[in-house]
Nucleic acid binder design. Structure first.
Length: 402
DNA sequence: GTCAATTCACATGAAAGAGACCACGGTCTAGTG
DNA sequence: CTAGACCGTGGTCTCTTTCATGTGAATTGACGA
């Protein structure tokens, strides 16, 4: 019995694959040509061009929603610059790319700095040193020779939200202390309003040049998908209306190309898994649901126990109580649960923050409302669709042993 | 009926503590020649 | 004599608590028409 089940799975893989080269659809893949971004690439290139001669360019700040090609374009241009410099046999340019959003990699001032240093080929302990010691280490390293260090800080808004903008100020001001080396900053942000709540000094030095990446529209997304799918899939696999539908779905999500590619890839995987020779609309719909579902469940699963307990409280109240829910009720339920499963209960202050975090994650929707004499509170609405909700409840019941 | 004061139930902020992790330098210990 | 084990100190980081302050509309109660 076991054997036949395995046979079925492996057979569907060993047969003709509908993929020709799946890697093309992965987000890490850098395409040879970038469509519909000529203008932006030119702009980035002309701003950063002085780096070709080892001169400090203007600090650049790039905005745009997720999946609009910001990172791609900046990396493309800096790679070209680096290639040219290296081709001429020089090595006065260092390009360092840091994604500030990756947890445990770069979400504190110390770690960002450590990350830069390790990109320069030096080691620095993961913790244990005073931050200013790391700064002087950094200065010492780059001062060893005359060079230009181009630091690209991706998702910089995330970092600043967590740390404060102080480190950006220090970083921009560092140049006046350096004799040999120069630092050039490129900030990439998803949030359009990010610049507004920065310290004015940082704003002026970081935003010497600014660039906005508009979202792709549905037609542009179609072009991109056609290009990539040509390489990714075998011939005659795609139904005609798959790409338009796919780009329409993604365009609805503020023109996110990454999402569109993901969708296509997952749809392909689903089709392949079911042994289908064709990628039809049906698979696209399934993929759309699956991505959403996996994302949510993944988030829930990886939350700490206390957070899960709060979420479980919300889930169970959501069914029994009348909507909407308020903080007080959730907290009471939470304390009750803590007693039954012998957990230490957190303070209301903390639970309040946890609820706010869930809102950020999109698991729930929260409005702060004032109910007059009934005080001020959060109105909590659960955002999980029915199937996900059920699955989440099962998962939490199991994980928390309730 | 109108209007300002009151009041509720939290939201929101700031500061500080606990506990985990880690580097560094000094001291102790056991193995080596 | 020396390498490695071990310890104390001092640093970061995350999660949490404690204390303090803020908030916005329903409610209240005084006031005047």
């Amino acid at each position: 019995m076991m054997g036949s089940a395995l046979d079925k799975i492996f057979d569907s893989y060993s047969g003709e694959s509908i993929f020709k080269n799946k890697r093309v659809l992965q987000i890490s893949h850098t395409p040879v040509t970038i469509s519909h971004r000529d203008q932006q690439i030119e702009a980035v290139a002309s701003i950063l061009a002085p780096a070709l001669k080892g001169e400090r360019a203007s600090n650049l700040f790039v905005y745009g929603k997720t999946g609009t090609g910001k990172t791609l374009c900046v990396q493309f241009v800096t790679n070209e610059i680096l290639k040219r410099v290296q081709d001429s046999g020089k090595d006065f340019l260092k390009v360092i790319y840091i994604n500030c959003k990756l947890k445990k990699v770069a979400d504190t001032e110390y770690r960002i700095l450590a990350e830069i240093i390790s990109a320069l080929g030096e080691r620095v302990p993961a913790t244990g040193l005073p931050t200013d010691a790391v700064y002087s280490r950094f200065i010492e390293i780059i001062e060893r020779k005359k060079q230009l260090v181009l630091v690209i800080l991706d998702e910089i808004d995330q970092a600043v939200k967590k740390i404060s903008d102080g480190f950006l100020y220090t970083l921009t001001r560092l140049n006046s202390e350096l004799k040999n080396a120069q630092i050039n900053l490129v900030g990439i942000s998803n949030s359009l309003t990010f610049m507004d709540d920065l310290d004015p000094r940082v704003r002026s030095s970081l935003g010497e040049e600014e660039l906005v990446f508009p979202p792709y529209n549905a037609l542009q997304l179609q072009d991109i998908l056609r290009e990539r799918s040509g390489e990714a899939f075998a011939e005659n696999v795609l139904d005609n209306d798959v790409i338009p539908k796919c780009s329409a779905l993604a365009a609805r999500e503020h023109g996110d190309a990454r999402r569109a590619l993901d969708l296509l890839r997952v749809a392909g995987e689903l089709a392949e898994r079911e042994g289908s020779k064709k990628l039809t609309l049906e698979f696209l719909d399934k993929a759309n649901q699956k991505i959403e579902r996996d994302k949510m469940l993944d988030i829930i699963q990886n939350e700490p126990k206390q957070h899960q307990l709060v979420l479980y409280s919300i889930l169970s109240l959501h069914d029994s109580e009348k909507n909407p829910l308020f903080t007080g009720a959730v907290y009471n339920k939470y304390q009750e649960l803590c007693q039954t499963c012998k957990f230490e209960s957190l303070t209301q202050r903390r639970v309040s923050d946890i609820i706010a975090e869930f809102d950020m994650l999109g698991l729930i929707n929260v409005d702060v409302i004032s109910r007059g004499r009934q005080g001020r509170t959060r109105e909590i609405k659960l955002m999980l669709p029915e199937p996900i909700k059920t699955r989440a409840r099962e998962m939490l019941t199991e994980g928390l042993m309730i």
